[in-house]
């Protein structure tokens, strides 16, 4: 999720990751690879019949009253640069009426 000013300057950036996370139980280092993973230590994946709700609070820099908010929901395949964009929502948000 990013927020940008009218002239394209990024004023906020945040990511949430939804997936299982495992170690080999010998250290606290998260590992990928079936041949070394032993146990999930955390599961933030999307679960059936559940909704993942997030609330991002963006404190804007002094003088900024309008931003474009871009929320992109992506499915990453093997590495962050290889993804399918499932949804992308752009909203103009202004503090002034």
């Amino acid at each position: 999720m990013t927020a940008k000013t009218k002239d394209g300057k990024e004023v906020y950036n945040s990511e949430k990751h939804y997936h299982t996370q495992a170690t080999d139980c010998k250290t606290n280092k998260m590992l990928y690879g079936a041949q070394v993973k032993t146990q999930y230590i955390r599961d933030t994946a999307l679960q059936p019949y559940e909704t993942k709700a997030e609330s991002f609070e963006i404190m804007l820099p002094e003088g900024v009253r309008d931003v474009d908010v871009i929320v992109s929901l992506r499915y990453e395949i093997n590495k962050p640069s290889n993804f399918i964009e499932i949804a992308k929502v752009t909203r103009k948000v202004s503090l002034d009426r």
Partner: peptide, 10 residues
């Protein structure tokens, strides 16, 4: 100055 973005994924 605050912007709040609420997301719900199902």
């Amino acid at each position: 100055p605050m912007v709040v973005v609420n997301t719900k994924i199902t």
